[in-house]
């Protein structure tokens, strides 16, 4: 039985799209024009997904567990190769913000390298991480081009002062040391919405907006749009179409109106997150 199942799985891997018939492909669109870098999404993610707050020291040693992070890139002033930051004064031109989280790649480089198959592709086109199966070889973390996989280097839950354990989200587990974790697109919310759709008698259709990820919900400028890419009526699918971003293309058309791109898409990893480029007035 197990052998038969394994061969079936392998034959599926030969296809570009593992689950062509699946009615769901969860995707995201992030408008960098709207992102103000406030970090509300990061905070919401901590609250929703039981992320440990590691503290100053662990953060400094690179052990932070933020599934979502706001990356900040400074634009280099004309003619200068490196920006010079003195006494905490940053250049006037300001920063570019990119909220970065697991891109739920369709050709996820993390999946084939896991020795115990703890990370795999679901029929929803989600890149799932099975905490119970993970042995912590950390190969997936190395192979992730976005470096959005976070490893439990310590047993962080032990540091949680009582009664803070009461505020943990009961919908998902608290991870122990030695396990890899990452953004799940709030899979517990997706499951709940799908269950409800099933109860209502339409298991292959989840209404657009029925699932809101924690980051999307808390974004004050509504820069994040989340939904089913297979549903042509969904907001996210419309945005992808509008900016002519589609799976299977490794380079996007860069014209005035088309701002869509996927980060590192030239690596052929087929991420499910589209970013909309920030437009700046270079004359100002």
């Amino acid at each position: 039985m197990a052998l038969k199942r394994m061969i079936e799985n392998w034959s599926r891997l030969r296809k570009r799209d593992y689950y062509e018939d699946s009615p769901f492909m969860w995707g995201m669109s992030i408008d960098l024009n709207k992102c103000i870098g406030c970090g509300a999404c990061v905070t919401a993610c901590y609250a929703e997904n039981n992320l440990p707050v590691v503290g100053k020291e662990h953060y400094a040693t690179g052990h932070a567990m933020h599934w979502m992070r706001i990356e900040r890139y400074w634009e280099e002033p004309e003619g200068e190769t490196d920006i010079d930051i003195k006494d905490g004064e940053y250049p006037e031109r300001g920063a570019h913000y990119i909220p970065m989280m697991c891109q739920q790649c369709n050709h996820a480089p993390c999946e084939p390298v896991c020795p115990v198959a703890a990370t795999y592709h679901t029929t929803d086109h989600l890149n799932a991480q099975v905490y119970n199966r993970c042995v912590g070889s950390r190969y997936c973390g190395n192979n992730c081009p976005y470096k959005v996989r976070y490893f439990n280097f310590f047993d962080y839950w032990k540091d949680l002062p009582s009664p803070l354990e009461m505020q943990l989200n009961p919908d998902l587990s608290v991870r122990s040391k030695g396990v890899m974790e990452k953004c799940t697109f709030c899979v517990q919310r997706i499951r709940a919405a799908k269950d409800q759709a099933n109860d209502e008698g339409h298991p292959h259709h989840v209404e657009d907006g029925a699932v809101k990820t924690a980051c999307q919900q808390s974004c004050p400028t509504q820069a994040i749009v989340f939904g089913n890419l297979r549903d042509p009526e969904s907001e996210v699918a419309k945005q992808w179409e509008e900016h002519e971003v589609e799976l299977g293309r490794h380079e996007q058309d860069k014209s005035e109106d088309l701002r869509g791109y996927r980060v590192l898409e030239e690596l052929n990893v087929e991420p499910c997150v589209m970013y909309l480029d920030r437009v700046r007035d270079t004359e100002a």
């Binding site: 039985m1 084939p112 020795p115 198959a117 042995v135 070889s137």
Partner: peptide, 21 residues
Amino acid sequence: MYWVLPYPNQRTIWPNFRSPL
């Protein structure tokens, strides 16, 4: 660590034969 080895188990789970590890 023994999960890396392909041994028969009641969960009928194989390791991932695509992984160089």
